[in-house]
């Protein structure tokens, strides 16, 4: 992976100037029974930008991004893609807007091989309409080789793969289908140090290609390094959304723990 091509994130100029946001989520609400999982949250994302979502377990981060990926339906609020209001009612809708998601619990079918997983729901077919396994396997081989050179077990059910290899399959899916908006929910949670590093490099590369990325992670330091902006949530509410240059690690921690934004309260 060509890490040298991308500058360190915080030093880059604000990519937002004079552009329409790729994604705007405005005043999003969703409740499960009596639990307000997400309450009046507004976030946006620009092309070539990485926005980090931080917060304790149960803060509502996964729920918020699942609304964008079509897994959950919001109770109220608005989503705009490229400035236009859109309805995302299913994962299929999200895919139509080039939104790809890498879920916290890896959304792979363990009994199928890498190619079947990569193309799940979007199989390549022959002229007669049958699934074209050979072509899908060849494509998978190409794309996975780029992401993870150690990846060899193409024919095995993904159950037999390591956490990093499984994550490669999930990421390959996003890359192969030309995601414009990428959602990564704790992509490194199940990975070792080396594999986490590979994912970080990949995020930089995709960012350089102009993708917008929502990244969820608990590693504040990693987030400071990778993200352009961070949004902190607590109990379903957005505490603050700041440029990484403007905050310290301590500021972020106090937002996470106390639920107050020190920058706005001075």
């Amino acid at each position: 992976m060509a890490a040298a091509e991308t500058a360190a994130a915080p030093a880059s100029p604000d990519p937002r100037i004079g552009r329409t946001p790729l994604v705007e989520m405005k005043n999003i609400h969703i409740a499960f029974g009596g639990v307000h999982a997400v309450e009046d949250v507004s976030v946006d994302l620009y092309p070539g930008e990485v926005v980090g979502l931080l917060g304790h377990n149960g803060a509502g981060k996964s729920t918020l991004i699942k609304i964008l990926s079509g897994a959950y339906q919001m109770d109220s609020g608005e989503i705009r893609i490229d400035g236009k209001p859109v309805k995302i009612e299913s994962p299929r809708d999200a895919r139509r807007y080039n939104i790809e998601t890498i879920y916290q619990t890896l959304a792979l079918a363990d009994n199928l091989d890498a190619a079947s997983n990569l193309f799940l729901g979007r199989e390549l077919t022959t002229k007669l309409g049958f699934v074209d396994d050979a072509r899908m396997e060849a494509e998978t081989k190409k794309i996975v080789a780029r992401l993870n050179p150690n990846f060899k077990k193409l024919k095995e059910p993904v159950k037999a793969l390591s956490g990093g290899q499984r994550q490669s399959v999930a990421i390959a899916r996003a890359v192969y289908f030309n995601a414009k908006i990428l959602i990564m929910d704790e992509p490194t949670a199940a990975l070792g140090v080396h594999e986490s590093h590979m994912v970080a490099e990949l995020i930089k590369e995709l960012k350089a290609q102009g993708l917008g990325i929502f990244l969820i992670s608990h590693d504040t330091r990693e987030m400071m390094a990778l993200c352009d902006r961070v949004a902190v949530m607590k109990n379903g509410r957005l505490i603050g959304m700041e440029r990484v240059e403007d905050v310290t690690e301590d500021d972020i921690l106090s937002m996470i723990i106390l639920g107050k934004n020190p920058l706005r309260e001075k």
Binding site: S69, A71, S90, P91, R92, R95, T101, Y103, T105, A107, L108, A109, D110, N111, L112, S116, N117, L120, G121, R122, E123, T125, G129, F130, V131
Partner: peptide, 24 residues
């Protein structure tokens, strides 16, 4: 083995959530 229907049946059996999230 050769149709989407079959692929989706096996995918759903392997991981129903993954199948749902893949738009099946």
């Amino acid at each position: 083995r050769r149709t989407r229907l079959g692929r989706y049946i096996f995918a759903t059996g392997g991981n129903p959530d993954a199948a749902d999230l893949s738009g099946i």
